[in-house]
Every structure is written in structure tokens, then in C-alpha cells.
Amino acid sequence: MPTTSTSPAGDPLSALSYEEARDELIRVVTELEQGATTLEESIALWERGEALARHCEEWLIGAKARLDAARAGGGTAQSSGTPQTSGAFDGE
């Protein structure tokens, strides 16, 4: 399921690379840890962080699925650069 939140620049969250989403998530967590925001701002940051974390997880699941397919000799790994949501992440 694609993530439909938007980045601060107004771009769809799905357009962010893993690294961009991870870096923004780090910024969000840092801002929340500082505690200098209002309750409303904190809630919005928390929601953004949750969406970013889901997006990163989708990228990691897709990367694992592609690695598993390559290891299994399933032909060419998918190289579209978009997150794949099939499979489960088992921490290998």
C-alpha cells in the first residue's frame, strides 16, 4: 500500500528515497526529543515520524525480497527503485 503523506516540500512521501526518509525521520525524532514544540506540533511531528518509519520499513522489506530472490536464483532482481511490500522482514 503506497504511503500518501507529503513531505514538507509538498512531495508525496512515496517519492522520497530511503535515505531521504531516514534523514527526515532522524530530524523529526530530534525535534521531538528537544521538547520545545507545542502539543499540536508534537502530534503532527509524531504522525509524520510514523509515516516516515512505515516508508522506510517498506523500502527495507522490498530490499530484502530482492536479495532473497537473487539468492534463490530467481533471475534478475527488481531494479525499479520503488519500495516493494511483499514478504516479511525477519531480521536476517
Rank of each mutant, 00 (worst) to 15 (best):
Q78V: 12
L67P: 07
G73F: 01
A72M: 05
T82L: 10
A51W: 01
I61D: 07
H55R: 12
G73H: 00
A70P: 03
E58T: 05
G81E: 11
R66P: 03
A77P: 03
R54T: 12
D68M: 04
A77Q: 11
S80M: 12
A51Y: 01
R66Y: 04
A65I: 03
G62H: 00
G62K: 00
D68F: 03
E58C: 08
L67W: 14
G81P: 08
A70I: 09
A65K: 04
E58S: 07
R54E: 13
A69D: 15
W59I: 02
A70N: 08
Q78R: 15
G73E: 01
E58W: 05
L60N: 10
T82G: 08
A69M: 14
G73Y: 00
E57A: 15
T76E: 14
G75N: 06
R66L: 04
Q78D: 15
P83D: 02
T76Y: 13
G81N: 10
A77S: 11
L60E: 11
R71N: 08
D68C: 02
A77Y: 07
A53H: 15
A70C: 07
L67R: 12
I61N: 11
C56A: 07
T82H: 11
L52D: 04
G74T: 09
S79G: 14
S79N: 12
A51Q: 05
G75Q: 07
S79R: 14
A77C: 07
R54N: 14
A65Y: 04
W59A: 01
Q78G: 10
R66H: 05
L60V: 09
G74N: 14
G75T: 06
L67M: 13
E57M: 15
A51E: 05
R54P: 07
R71P: 01
T76F: 09
A51N: 03
Q78N: 14
G75R: 04
L60F: 09
A72Q: 06
G75W: 05
R71L: 11
C56R: 01
G74W: 10
K64S: 08
L52C: 01
L67N: 12
G62A: 01
R54Y: 09
E57I: 12
L52S: 02
D68V: 03
T82R: 13
L67C: 13
G81W: 06
A77F: 05
R71F: 07
A77L: 07
G75Y: 06
L67F: 11
T76Q: 15
R71W: 11
G73A: 01
S80D: 15
P83W: 02
K64L: 10
A65D: 05
S79Q: 14
A69F: 05
A70E: 14
P83N: 01
Q78C: 13
R54Q: 13
D68K: 00
L52N: 00
R71A: 10
C56I: 01
A77N: 05
A53P: 07
K64D: 08
A65Q: 07
L67E: 13
A63D: 09
G73S: 02
R66G: 03
L52G: 00
L67T: 13
A65H: 06
C56L: 03
C56P: 02
R71V: 08
E58D: 15
K64E: 09
S80A: 12
S80T: 15
A63E: 08
A72Y: 04
T76G: 11
A51T: 05
